[in-house]
Structure formats: structure tokens, C-alpha cells
């Protein structure tokens, strides 16, 4: 009994750590999809968020002897935001202004973003002339991982809930704010109208394109933070392709959470837990791979069940994936 509890206490924080990048990605994608844009570029955007943050942190670590903690946090943070914002701008320019096919644009963006991540991740250390061979950020990681000083004194509660760096909590806060904005504010109402029926929103005086741009860009920036978290907090070093398929998992999470950011919070920890469940269950290496499949299977089940039940509130935004052209009414 004691042993099970102990392993649970060690498992939960790790599930939260695994879930956090997914939560960022899913929250960003939900906001984007609510504007009617299926952004399949999210995996690439998360890579870019990660590498921009890592690059900022790396260059700062090597440019000063003693780091200013505030700057050491702010520089990677703002680099990640700017990097993913640029990605969001590419996507929205192509799909909103030029009305390009969303799937093709998104997939190209993912190729591009992963390329950027791996390229700079693999070469920046070499190019920087610091003598390093990998993009490792030991000091930045310590800062990002700083948790509340009294967390350790609070026993299991502290280690499960309070032992994380601030980005873990920021993810929850952003998801809650997103849920609030989407559900309880005029901006949220209008954003949802744009994703459901842009022609109606347009006729009601909502600036459809502006909403699409802003939602996509904010969504991208939030997703980018997921990449940042993974590199500077979870890993502390850039590894090419290290982020893996977490970006796609984040898109799966959107469906699992039926487009509700607050459901995404628990969903992300569940997915995170499923992702590493094999580590606590005594099974072979091979079976671990089957366990990693679980989040996707669960997502498909949710997708199928919601489509069969035909509950209107659980459907994807009605105009998801369609370009809006006013004069085509």
C-alpha cells in the first residue's frame, strides 16, 4: 500500500511535467480552431518556440559571467514568444489573407518549424564560437525550475503540486483565462461566432479577418511556450527531434477536451500520465510502445463518440478548415 502511494506521488509530478507542453499546445490550438482555422503547424510552432527560447537563453548564458535572474527568465520567454508569433504570422498571412489551404499550409509550417528547430539546435552551439557542442542550458534550467521554497516542507502535497517551475502554473493560468475569455466575454463570443459562421459574424459587424489573425497569433504564442517549457525546464538541453510527436498529441488533446481549455488541463495531465504510464507498470520495453498509443486511441474514441452522438456543442467549430471570402455569400 505504502509502496503504491509512494510511486503515485512520484508519478503524478512527472505526469504533470509531461502534460504541461501538451497543455500549452492544446490551449493555443483551441483558440486558433475557435476562429475556424485548423492549424496543423502547431508541432512546428512548438519547435520554434523551443529553439528560440533555447537560443536566447544559450546566448545570454554565454555572454555574461553572472546572470541576472530576471533577464535569464525574460530573454528566453520573449524570444520564444517572438519566434512563435512569427510562425503564427506566416500561417495567418497565408490562410487568412491569401486564403491558402489550411491543411497544406499547416503541414508545410510543421516541416519548416521542425527544420528550424533541428537546424539551429544542431548548429547554433557550433556557430556561436563558445566551444560548446550542444545547446545546453544548465543555469537557465535551474532558474526556470525554481519552485516555491517551502514546497519541500509540505510532504506529498508539496512534491506533487508545488514542486514545479512557474511555467507549469502559467500553463494552467493561461488555460483558465482562455476558458474564461471564450465562454464569458464578448470577445470570446465574437471569436466563436467567427469560427462557427463567419458570414453571420461579418454581417453583425465583427471584423472577421482581424479575429482570425489575432486568434491564430495568440494561439501560436501560447503553443510556443510549450516548446520553451520542454527545453528550458524539462530538459535543460536541446536535443534534435527530442520534442517528438508531442505537437500532434496536443492537437489530439484539443479533440479530447472537446474544444474546452479548462477540460484540457486535466486532459493534458491524463495524456502526460498515459504517455509515461509504462514507467510505473512493470512491463517490457515493447509493451511500453503500446501504452504510448493510448492517448491517440482515446482521442479517436472521443472523436467517434461525439460525432455519433451529434451533440452540437461537442462538434468542431462549424467552419473549421474553410476559408472565408465575403463576396462568395
Amino acid at each position: 500500500m505504502q509502496a503504491i502511494l509512494a510511486s503515485l506521488i512520484s508519478f503524478l509530478p512527472r505526469a504533470i511535467m509531461q502534460g504541461t507542453p501538451l497543455l500549452y499546445g492544446a490551449t493555443g490550438e483551441i483558440i486558433t480552431e475557435k476562429s475556424g482555422h485548423l492549424n496543423l503547424g502547431i508541432p512546428g510552432i512548438m519547435y520554434v518556440g523551443g529553439i528560440s527560447g533555447a537560443a536566447g537563453a544559450f546566448l545570454y548564458e554565454h555572454s555574461v559571467d553572472v546572470m541576472n535572474p530576471a533577464l535569464a527568465i525574460l530573454i528566453p520567454l520573449s524570444c520564444a514568444l517572438v519566434g512563435s508569433l512569427l510562425m503564427g504570422l506566416i500561417y495567418s498571412f497565408l490562410t487568412v489573407t491569401l486564403r491558402a489551404n489550411q491543411n497544406v499550409t499547416g503541414l508545410a509550417l510543421t516541416t519548416f518549424g521542425i527544420g528550424i528547430g533541428n537546424f539551429f539546435g544542431g548548429t547554433l552551439a557550433k556557430l556561436s564560437g563558445t566551444g560548446e557542442t550542444s545547446l545546453s542550458l544548465p543555469q537557465t534550467k535551474i532558474l526556470f525550475k525554481t519552485s516555491l521554497p517551502f514546497a519541500a516542507d509540505l510532504g506529498w502535497f508539496g512534491s506533487v503540486f508545488l514542486s514545479h517551475g512557474f511555467l507549469v502554473y502559467l500553463a494552467v493560468v493561461i488555460a483558465l483565462i482562455a476558458a474564461f475569455v471564450l465562454g464569458r466575454t464578448r470577445v470570446g463570443l465574437q471569436l466563436r461566432a467567427v469560427g462557427e459562421n463567419p458570414a453571420t459574424a461579418d454581417a453583425a459587424g465583427v471584423n472577421v479577418n482581424r479575429y482570425k489573425y489575432v486568434a491564430t497569433c495568440i494561439g501560436s504564442m501560447i503553443a510556443g511556450l510549450g516548446g520553451l517549457y520542454y527545453v528550458v525546464d524539462y530538459m535543460g538541453v536541446w536535443a534534435n527531434d527530442g520534442f517528438g510527436d508531442r505537437g500532434w498529441l496536443a492537437i489530439a488533446l484539443v479533440i479530447f477536451a472537446v474544444w474546452r481549455p479548462h477540460v484540457g488541463i486535466l486532459g493534458s495531465y491524463l495524456f502526460g500520465g498515459l504517455y509515461i504510464l509504462y514507467t510505473v507498470i512493470n512491463i517490457g520495453v515493447a509493451e511500453q510502445e503500446l501504452f504510448k498509443m493510448l492517448p491517440y486511441v482515446v482521442t479517436i474514441i472521443v472523436l467517434v463518440v461525439t460525432s455519433i452522438r451529434e451533440k452540437r456543442e461537442s462538434q468542431p467549430p462549424a467552419s473549421l478548415g474553410l476559408a472565408y471570402f465575403r463576396e462568395e455569400r
Binding site: 491558402a100 497544406v104 508545410a108 516541416t111 521542425i114 527544420g115 539546435g121 548548429t123 534534435n240
Partner: peptide, 23 residues
């Protein structure tokens, strides 16, 4: 002596230009 991901970046750029041109 660059990383091979360089080609993904170039591929991405090419595709962006072509899909943009469809407009």
C-alpha cells in the same frame, strides 16, 4: 558542415511561396 534539417527549412520556404502564389 551544417545540419541536415537545413533542407526542411528550404522545403518549407518553397512550399510557402507556391501556396501563396495560388492566391
Amino acid at each position: 558542415g551544417l545540419n541536415h534539417a537545413f533542407s526542411d527549412i528550404i522545403t518549407g520556404i518553397i512550399i510557402f511561396f507556391i501556396i501563396g502564389s495560388e492566391f
